[in-house]
Write a protein that binds this DNA or RNA. Structure first.
Length: 604
RNA sequence: GGAGCCGUAGUUCAGCUCGGUCCAGAACGCCGGCCUGUCACGCCGGAGGUCGCGGGUUCGAAUCCCGUCGGCUCCGCCA
């Protein structure tokens, strides 16, 4: 028989009790974390949000009714205890828990609810499969590490609001039911009942609305906001995710960067007690690609790409000099202490490189004072020496080379660099390597679509000195590619955690950029007409940034996946094992929306 | 769209190479009994399985083959 809560109130959280409470009569509410029945005395660890305390039910001290009830308590029963706090008898202290010097002698015991056999253990270390954890997320969240992640998340929200509100930013909500936009990710669509055949889209970001808020004279806007993108999932990608989004009027890059740095600094200080060094390092997009092979380099380890194209054009090795002749490049990585790799391991690296488009991978081991490799014979002594100098090669190193186009070479080496660093476990933990990537190209040529696409988004402003290039950019691919944008990304430990730009605030420039992107006047008018219109009515210069909140928090708590910092995340197929969404709806619901569904198979 | 790993009691796994001795086994959990200072309590006993699903091969399939569903990682995709 279960007890009613009635007017039973909690005086303390279990974890709040200290030796100062000794002698106090207290009431506690929570879950039975563990029960130890000795046939006589019964120990129950009562757990709540803030911690655990031992409750003692002693037949010689507690009322018989309470003792009989205590015998029935099992793991995760919901209980209430009224009792006196006492110092534990000498020798029975438990140093493993913060309240280990005290215990509560139960006077009154309430059993408020029972609990079925648990599908996953409520323990700190994770053993259960992720599928089970998501299905029973309420049990998973009872685990301390999950609770801590959600707590950190809460503290980041609060710090964000404190900092941005303190710097004159107004929190304004933007619509969740909005308009589908071309460019960018696939939209989630929501059918309109009132206008059958029409659809809302869930926002990929509040981009257009926050710009319009600037036109509206808000001056400084922010929002902690859900964004939706219907693309395939990854460990760091969910179909719905959260951004810290902000925008500033009359701002240039430095204003946005400095607010961003201030915010991140504030969050780290407030939540983790860490003093980040400001300003963050900055490198250009070009430098990032050429040194690290990626636009989100992890600077926690060195291993930079080395260009040996000039040397490669002279060596007899056909793969190298042919690549150069065709306008490609040859670059290498020095894998420190990599000479210990077996032939098999090197072959695995080659296969890995091929996955990313490499045709092959050349390698040279430096061991016993000389170079050993199938390609050494193509190098003269002098060339070997030169190569060693360029690569800063020392005894015990392994040099690997990719010869291909500019793009492929960098891309492959970028992935290799990361892969090898993981493999060799040379990435230091507990480092916070923030890095701004600046000077992005405005557009890049998309071979598949046979048009230019925006690297950032279509509302990103070109650099002021490049605006004149817009007029002839369509006819001149090289010229178009040389236009730099006013975009910037913030990278932390090799992950992109934020990105933004100074936007276009003039309708004439916006029109030219649309033209460059192959977006016709009609299409621009139809899809973004409301923004273009707004720009015509005194739009101030403005810019901003959005942080990927989930990624930021995942890195802060050391989680491998953003699912660990989201209360109710989705699986890789976009399912929610807890609620079983998405699911079929009734014929009536579909009819009301004027929707007919074509299924390959009938729903079961 | 593609590649890889995984799917066996409530949970985590072993068994699968080389089919039979497996009407499947361990640990934790659960249930019952004993136990008055434990805290991963202990001791004794017990229950618990559509081996993801479907098909095939075979005298015989958890094990081999094909398909399919689901979970995870990655590529493509993600302005």
């Amino acid at each position: 028989m279960l007890d009613n809560l009635g007017d039973f109130k909690r005086d303390y959280f279990a974890g709040e009790l200290t030796e100062n409470n000794i002698g106090d009569e207290v009431r506690l509410l929570g879950w039975a974390d563990s029960v130890r029945d000795h046939g006589g005395v019964i120990f129950i660890n009562l757990r709540d949000r803030e911690g655990v305390v031992q409750v003692v039910v002693d037949p010689s001290k507690s009322p018989e009714e309470s003792y009989e009830k205590a015998k029935k308590v099992r793991s995760e029963y919901v209980i209430g205890v009224q009792g006196r706090v006492q110092r534990r008898p000498v020798g029975t202290e438990n140093p493993k828990i913060p309240t280990g010097n005290i215990e509560v002698v139960a006077d009154k015991l309430l059993i408020l609810n029972t609990c079925d056999v648990l599908p996953l253990p409520i323990e700190d270390s994770i053993n259960a499969s992720e599928e089970v954890r998501l299905k029973y997320r309420y049990l998973d969240i009872r685990r301390k590490p999950m609770f801590k992640n959600l707590l950190v998340r809460h503290e980041v929200y609060q710090a964000t609001r404190e900092y941005l509100a303190g710097h004159g930013f107004l929190e304004v909500e933007t619509p969740m039911l909005t308009k589908s936009t071309p460019e960018g990710a696939r939209d989630f669509l929501v059918p309109s009942r009132l206008e059958k055949g029409k659809f809302y889209a869930l926002p990929q970001s509040p981009q257009l609305f926050k710009q319009i808020l600037m036109v509206g004279g808000i001056e400084r806007y922010f929002q902690i906001v859900k964004c939706f993108r219907d693309e395939d999932l990854r460990a760091d990608r969910q179909p719905e995710f959260t951004q810290i989004d902000f925008e500033i009027s009359f701002a240039n890059e430095e204003d946005v960067i400095s607010i961003s740095e201030g915010l991140v600094h504030f969050i780290f200080k407030k939540v983790l007690g860490i003093d980040l060094k400001l300003p963050f390092k900055r490198i250009t997009y070009k430098e990032a690609i050429e040194k690290y092979g990626t636009d989100k380099p992890d600077l926690r380890y060195e291993m930079e790409l080395v260009d040996i194209s000039d040397l490669a054009s002279d060596v007899e090795f056909k793969v190298f000099n042919d690549t150069i002749k065709k306008g490609g490049i040859v670059k290498g990585l020095n894998i420190k202490k990599g000479a210990k790799f077996s032939r098999k391991e090197i072959d695995e690296l080659t296969d890995y490189a091929k996955k990313f488009g490499a045709k092959g991978m050349a390698w040279i081991k430096i061991s016993e004072g000389k170079m050993s490799s199938p390609i050494t014979k193509f190098f003269t002594q002098e060339q070997q020496q030169k190569l060693k100098e360029k690569m800063k090669a020392e005894e015990g190193d392994l040099l690997v080379f990719i010869a291909d186009s500019y793009e492929t070479t960098h891309r492959v080496l970028g992935f290799l660099r990361k892969h090898i660093a993981d493999k060799l476990k040379i990435i230091p933990e507990d480092r916070w390597d923030f890095l701004w990537i600046v000077d992005f190209p405005l557009v890049e040529w998309d071979e598949e679509e046979e048009r230019f696409v925006a690297l950032h988004h279509p509302f990103t402003s070109p650099k002021e000195e490049d605006i004149s290039k817009l007029d002839s950019a369509l006819e001149d691919k090289a010229l178009a590619s040389s236009i730099k944008s006013r975009a910037y990304d913030l990278v932390l430990n090799g992950e992109e955690i934020g990105g933004g730009s100074i936007r276009i605030h003039r309708p004439d420039i916006q029109k030219k950029v649309f033209e460059l992107l192959g977006i016709s006047d009609e299409e621009a008018e139809e899809k973004f007409g409301f923004l273009i219109n707004a720009l015509r009515y005194g739009a101030p210069p403005h810019g901003g940034l959005a942080f990927g909140l989930d990624r930021l928090i995942a890195i802060m708590v050391g989680a491998d996946s953003i699912r660990e910092v989201i209360a109710f995340p989705k699986t890789q197929k976009g399912n929610c094992p807890l609620s079983n969404a998405p699911d079929y709806v009734t014929e009536e619901q579909l009819k009301e929306l004027g929707i007919t569904v074509e299924l390959e198979e009938e729903p079961s």
